[in-house]
Nucleic acid binder design. Structure first.
Lengths: 195, 195, 195, 195
DNA sequence: CATGAATGAGCCTTCATTCAT
DNA sequence: CATGAATGAAGGCTCATTCAT
């Protein structure tokens, strides 16, 4: 099959590398173009502006991830298993793409309010998956009835995100995927339960 | 008593307001100067550069907060109480200063790697407080023995931070301080325990 | 034939005029751009920075002059004739370009050490021509054997330069080219010889 | 005797050092003040502005030199002797004050037109001395009758100046005072005469 | 006379974006 | 579709100078 919009992906991938290696504000559009092997102007045939590259990149990578997760998660039985699976896959995604991890955890944050709104649009898909897991957990009785959906969702995402960011800031020195089990345990059982 | 470094605090406070209202990158140094009622050049008598204002602001505000917390927390008996106190005070801090909340949760993130390292220096104080609480909880048996200090700390901070950020992005429409109890419960008991 | 690097020369010529009329420090880059009929940013496609314009200008104008002189001087027989030719042409160069004279004799001096080193690189070509003339004069016996090459070269250049500078500072009121004969005589015969 | 205007000289001397070591444009007024051990504002009690320091410095140092020369030169008999004495003393002045040499030969040139006019005022004294020597030489028959006073004066000054500048730019590596004899010879006898 | 904190005018340079080819 | 030369807006920072003490 012929690649759809080959230059689009080419530019996205170039942007991930360039931004990860130089930082968003230090990455000129011309640098991305060079890395992608296209002319500066070509970028603007595929993206509205520089910010759009950053968002599109996130949409592409994180969107794909969410879709995949949503599919695969159906094979898991319990809400707890689903949650573990999500955590593990999220960490794996970052661990497998060194550059993406930097862009996602550090560079993406350097965006203005407008950008962050579009980024949150993408995250909505992630939050939906989480909500489904939590709701199903409540329905089956795995999770307690009174569990506040919004707070729980924010706890899960906030925890995963913070752990990932710290890991990236420590130059990804340790194996983050290995921690999925303990993180899952911490979220589900809190500080008290003896596991 | 004569105010210590009145211009310094004057500029910090002006910066909080200006940056909260316009965004960091949209806030020219001259705008901060105007808001502070000083000349542009005066800024540079107290701060190395524009970025330094942002970090100093955080050092000043968050540093003070951490010191105060550290003191007050000693009056609390159990680790659980201490943790609740921290969460409640953190939310209160943001709820009480509309502008600071925006700067802390949104604008501060738009900083490059170097800045973030200095910000993390400040957060170390926060993390130390958290570690002390967690350790004391483990010692008294309130928290389980196997609790991973680092992960637990990251969970607490990640959760608080994410909840605060979402609240700010929703224009601080609801009362965040009220949620302290439920957040505390969620962290300590996880998804399962019936409280 | 298509002009080679038309914008480059365009900017150089604009810079000569603008700097001559306003002085180097009073000539903003935007002023040069306007004079050249290009955008400010275009300057930086051809020059590293403002200082680079000044040096490049000198390289271009003086470099061309030296090359031309080197060629034409070969047609002259004696060292004395060659020397006269050089002096006369040097004065002519300045007399024919009012603006260039100002820039060369006055504005170019307002440069820092780094710049002056690059300027001296260009002058090396000039000094080489001088050295060749002096050496040939010594070989043919026109000039005395004991003549110190370095000092003689510095005397010739220093004399020409000082006379040119004074002429420029006096608003180029008199005809400098006419003086070539007497200057040549002074240099070759000194204060004593009756010519 | 109580020093007259001790701070004035203090600042002048500080300026010579600071400017020699950092370059004129890199020497902030505050740097001169610090070097002089006075407050920034004090500078302006003695000098109109920054440029005025540079000119005053030159007036002080070169003015003194010219006065001294004018006196001492009277003891010399012939015009040639007088000229030699001048050259030798000029070189000595620079050789004896490393910093002054840099300021005089390099930094002083980085001045705008207005400054240079005031500098030339000081040099008029120098030129007068030269003119007297040359005129007397012509009267006694030492120098040829047709000698153009203005050109001869410019040749002497241009030669000395160029030799001094080159010496400074070469980091004053060799002994310049030693060259006085050969320079004198070159000026008086030109390229031809066998000395 | 002396201080030094405060002033504020001024400009080089970058770089996202455009558009003629 | 693709190019890349040209554009031009925009602002952080310096530092000579002032003046209240």
């Amino acid at each position: 099959m012929i690649q759809k919009r080959p230059k689009y992906k080419q530019i996205i991938d170039a942007a991930v590398i360039a931004i990860a290696e130089n930082g968003y504000h230090q990455t000129q559009v011309s640098k991305i173009a060079k890395q992608a092997g296209v002319a500066d102007g070509t970028i603007y045939l595929y993206f509205k502006n520089k910010d759009d590259i950053l968002v599109s990149l996130f949409q592409e990578k994180m969107g794909n991830f969410i879709e995949k997760i949503e599919d695969e998660i159906k094979t898991k039985q319990t809400a707890s298993e689903k949650l573990y699976f999500l955590i593990e896959k999220h960490f794996s995604l970052l661990a497998e793409d060194h550059h993406l991890a930097i862009v996602t955890q550090l560079e993406l944050r350097q965006s203005n309010k407008e950008l962050r709104i579009r980024i949150n649009q993408v995250l909505k898909g992630y939050f939906n998956v989480l909500d489904k897991i939590l709701t199903s957990g409540k329905e089956t009785g795995e999770f307690r009835e009174g569990l506040d959906l919004r707070l729980a969702r924010q706890m899960v995402f906030g925890t995963i995100d913070e752990i990932a960011t710290t890991w990236v800031m420590n130059d990804q020195k340790y194996n983050i995927t290995e921690q999925a089990m303990k993180v899952h345990e911490l979220i589900v059982y809190g500080f008290i339960h003896q596991s």
